[in-house]
Nucleic acid binder design. Structure first.
Lengths: 134, 134
DNA sequence: ATACAGCTTTACGTTTACGTAAACTTCCTT
DNA sequence: AAGGAAGTTTACGTAAACGTAAAGCTGTAT
């Protein structure tokens, strides 16, 4: 089955370089639901994967609400009714479109960085030419 | 030279589907600096480009502060000192790394969407099989 | 002349995503 | 037994990115 290893909150926090406060907040926002041993949170490897996904979403500028929505989509892939599932396919397509827009945006910004770097190097060259002739 | 056309704040707002409030806020945060005719803002085509860049940054999850930093980098490509310029190259490299991380993240999320879609279609098939045999 | 459409500033309100502090339990170590 | 180290809840604070009035100026169409 799945890795049966478990994690404490601070293990996950240091592994992913986030605060425990953040992890608890994600739980508060329904993005995580760790087990408890007494009142202590015990994270499974699935929980760990979810955390990884949350942080990945953040790097792409997803809000926590958006990421939670994605999780809900995923969860409903097995349980949903026919109508639900068709709606899901639509939402998945929407997310795809979003990602492709981001790919375009990244390509554009990369071009801008290329351009900035080129100008930067030109100016540096000019400066060094001057210093040679002085 | 550059397009000498100018734009009103509401023209830009409707073109890019943002509120005038947002545009003024970007100015407040030093991301835009339109000319004035009397007290009315007059946006040049360069201003328009900057706005486009701001929104592109937003789609990539950049904060306004980050985008402003990028603008400052760009502006300094002509004026900076040698030390400045070398520091700039470092910053540009950092941004590049960020973008490449985002590319990886997007690829991963795309795989997850593939997977979700597949599961979705499977479940739909099962449902339809059942309906056939009933 | 007035009305209104579009611009302006000022300023308080709101949401998101946490930070930070206080006060408490639990378990281990010295 | 006494004190940390790591966990917990509760709650107020904060930065970012605007939303949302309120109140006023400004050109122009009726």
């Amino acid at each position: 089955m799945n890795d049966k290893k478990t994690y404490s909150i601070s293990e996950l926090a240091s592994e992913f370089d986030v605060t425990t406060r953040s992890i608890r907040f994600y739980e508060d926002q329904q993005l995580l639901a760790p087990a408890r041993r007494g009142q202590t949170r015990v994270y499974s490897s699935q929980d760990r994967v979810r955390l990884k996904l949350i942080l990945r979403g953040k790097r792409l500028g997803f809000s926590l609400a958006e990421t939670r929505e994605l999780f809900e989509l995923w969860d409903e892939t097995t349980t949903g009714s026919e109508k639900q599932l068709n709606l899901l396919l639509v939402k998945i397509a929407e997310k795809r479109a979003e990602l492709e827009q981001q790919l375009k945006d990244i390509a554009m910004v990369q071009l801008e960085l290329d351009s900035a770097e080129a100008r930067c190097r030109e100016t540096l060259n000019e400066i060094q030419q001057k210093q040679q002739t002085e």
